[in-house]
Design a protein around this nucleic acid. Structure first.
Lengths: 229, 229
DNA sequence: AAGTGGTCTAGACCACATT
DNA sequence: ATGTGGTCTAGACCACTTT
């Protein structure tokens, strides 16, 4: 069998794991490695490039390739559609629209989404259930200038999360994870005591230079988001 | 200038963003695209492969390449060394060891780390400050069977996080993000009211089949972890 | 100036999933 | 059986960074 880029990745990882190549170590150059593996330089190159992507190695021209000293391993996690996430647990998914209003964008939202003073937004409050258990409370704001068709959509059966994903492409976004003490309102919706610590995700998405939507997602008590390193 | 893989990525992303290629659309094959761009197939291949890695496209042999219908874009975030994270803000970093004990592993930890009944662990409580402001309370458990040299290390000046990163390689790990109500103890350390919602990270790391360490990190109030999509 | 990684090419063969 | 992506090669030239 021929030596593939995956074999080289494995070999490098093995050297690191067995402490042969410790953080900071300078690895042999691509040409040397290619020779010792008996493969083309491009193959070594791909292996090393992927290890850089995975946060294991650092490369600089002329300086060579080193084992990253603070292995800033990048955790990746997917942002699933909530319906899928719940259905994957085997439980039925249920969605409820709690409130729906069109209104002028409040100031805090205007500054967050960089909206003009005249901006009009659609504000939705929704509940997502796992079976009969409250799962997430969604506080969603949609920029009607960017997504005018949202104004005529009821969101009675399909949540804004899912609808937006299908309807509107986006180019950029950011996520903020934090913890929030449950207000009376939200506590009631989620069936949690007032002041319970809730895992909270705030998400903003943009289509090029235009902000599309902002959402605050409050998860039920004891929710944990998990990811692998 | 020659057409590079980055140009092709940009072009594909542009088609998607301008709704020419909507979710589900079948893209031309590599050979066709290579011809229309006037480049080698390998170049197109790399562009598409990276877009798959980024969660934009889906590929299946024989079936071709499609725009992913539920753009499960993967958020990536780095797990920095806390000292670096703080120093990057411009503020000085301060570390304090609060408690340090060697003890038999409690049951909950044994089951979490898959430790034998006789296992002995090092338990540390530490505080991390940003300037004089409490930043994070760290509750750390180290498997002394995996890291015997920890027993003789004082952790007075360097935190276990940083020490472990330099000292012990790891192969796997997982992260859990959640929200916790501050207990009296932790509230005092972090200067927060009792019951304040604290963003919490639980991290387990393994070296092959041996568990290395488990940590609970409680962040100060209002901490937000941010990442881009 | 020189050495390293970064990218591209043109061609080849392989592996897999559908037909 | 066929068509698609997946990978590899051998060589070339470029770009960056250090000396």
């Amino acid at each position: 069998m021929r030596t593939g880029y995956q074999d080289i990745k494995d070999h490098i990882l093995h050297q690191i794991r067995s402490n042969v190549w410790t953080p900071g170590t300078l690895l042999p150059g691509e040409i040397d490695l290619a020779e010792s593996f008996g493969c083309a330089r491009a193959t070594v190159s791909r292996a090393m490039r992927e290890l850089v992507d995975e946060g294991i190695l650092e490369r600089k021209r002329k300086a060579g390739t080193r084992v990253k000293s603070s292995p800033t391993r990048r955790a990746q996690f997917a942002i699933p559609i909530i319906r899928t996430e719940i259905e994957d647990t085997g439980a039925p998914y249920r969605y409820d629209l709690v409130e729906r209003h069109v209104l002028p964008a409040p100031n805090w939202l205007r500054s967050r989404l960089d909206l003009p003073e005249s901006a009009s937004v659609l504000h939705l409050k929704c509940m997502h259930y796992q079976g009969n258990t409250p799962y997430q409370f969604e506080d969603r704001w949609i920029n009607l200038a960017a997504v005018p068709q949202a104004e005529s959509y009821a969101f009675k059966d399909i949540g804004p999360n899912e609808w937006l994903v299908q309807e509107v492409p986006f180019t950029d976004g950011n996520l903020e994870f934090s913890a929030t003490n449950a207000t009376e309102d939200i506590a009631a919706f989620l069936g949690a005591p007032v002041n319970a610590a809730l895992f909270t995700v705030e998400r903003t998405t943009w289509l090029a230079d235009v902000s599309v939507t902002f959402a605050r997602l409050y998860f039920a008590r004891d929710y944990k988001m998990t990811t692998r390193l």
